[in-house]
């Protein structure tokens, strides 16, 4: 048992880092779907926009921590604006079902994808980790890139912050109440339209933030938007809709499936992620931590 862990430790830690990145996109997807009942397939584009912001900033400046933080700030600002825009765009479709919303947001994703490809080209663009974190450290005797540990730390901090906001603040209570019964929340004098735009903006900002954070390990390239979107959706299904803890657990599970699973059983790589999702759907249709109230 110990031998297994020591020989696969780096892969496990890699899986945690990847899972944390997936969490940034899955949390937004989960909240937007849970609170607004809007299925946004443009969420992967927001992630990719973040990654290309990291590319632009790291091309224009030396990759120091300051400029990396600048990229994060830009991504959050642009992501929030894009999220608010998507919220307005999808509002007229609120009563027309998920298929129409999926078609609209998928259209947006195609347009954004093409615009980004025009701007940045079709080849893979790499981003160097910011300077204090571009080295390696020793983890249980193995050498490991420092930056991936930073991703894990930032992701954990984000998860804790999101959990505290949703579970402990009045705003979080309002978000949960809106997921449960938006009409009744309006009867308390709350403009749920504004609340939903806010949630969409935060969800989108998180995805763009994840895009910057993930750029030094996943790079930026056309198609990455679809990959993270699909994995994000799988995470939401596995973790349960509208649940912060669910999105986190789901993201860690898929992170491991994508790294450890693929490393141990490479021939089943394509099957593993969706196999894991099917298994969860069979055993717990509302997700690992889902309460089933949004089904």
């Amino acid at each position: 048992m110990f031998g297994f862990f020591s020989s696969n430790l780096i892969t496990v830690v890699d899986g945690i880092a990847f899972g944390v990145l997936l969490f940034t996109i899955a949390l937004g997807l989960s909240l937007v779907f849970g609170v607004m009942d809007v299925l946004s397939l443009a969420h992967g584009s927001l992630y990719l926009i973040g990654s290309y912001i990291a590319v632009s900033v790291s091309t224009a400046f030396t990759p120091t921590l300051g400029f990396f933080v600048l990229a994060l700030v830009l991504a959050v600002a642009l992501g929030s604006l894009a999220g608010a825009g998507l919220s307005f765009l999808t509002r007229p479709l609120a009563s027309r079902g998920h298929l129409d919303q999926a078609l609209l947001t998928l259209g947006v994703a195609f347009v954004v994808g093409d615009l980004l490809a025009q701007q940045y080209g079709r080849e893979v663009r790499t981003v160097a980790p910011p300077s204090p974190f571009d080295g390696s450290v020793s983890v249980f005797g193995s050498t490991y890139p420092t930056y991936r540990l930073v991703i894990i730390a930032v992701g954990l901090a984000l998860a804790i912050a999101a959990y505290l906001v949703i579970e402990r603040t009045k705003m979080g209570a309002l978000v949960q109440a809106t997921v449960a019964d938006a009409q009744m929340v309006r009867a308390l004098g709350v403009n749920t339209g504004r609340l939903m735009t806010g949630v969409f903006a935060v969800g989108a900002a998180l995805a763009a933030f994840g895009g910057v954070l993930g750029a030094p390990i996943l790079n930026a390239a056309p198609g990455l938007d679809n990959r993270v979107l699909i994995l994000g959706l799988v995470v939401v299904v596995i973790g349960g809709l509208g649940s912060v803890a669910g999105a986190f657990v789901g993201a860690l599970v898929i992170g491991q499936v994508q790294t450890l699973g693929v490393s141990l059983a490479p021939s089943y790589a394509a099957f593993l992620t969706f196999g894991a999702m099917a298994l969860v759907l069979l055993l717990r249709p509302a997700g690992i931590l889902g309460k089933g109230r949004l089904a």
Partner: peptide
Amino acid sequence: RVFAPLTVENNLRI
């Protein structure tokens, strides 16, 4: 139509 996932206190707070 009380908010099922919220505590009594949070139902009141919002």
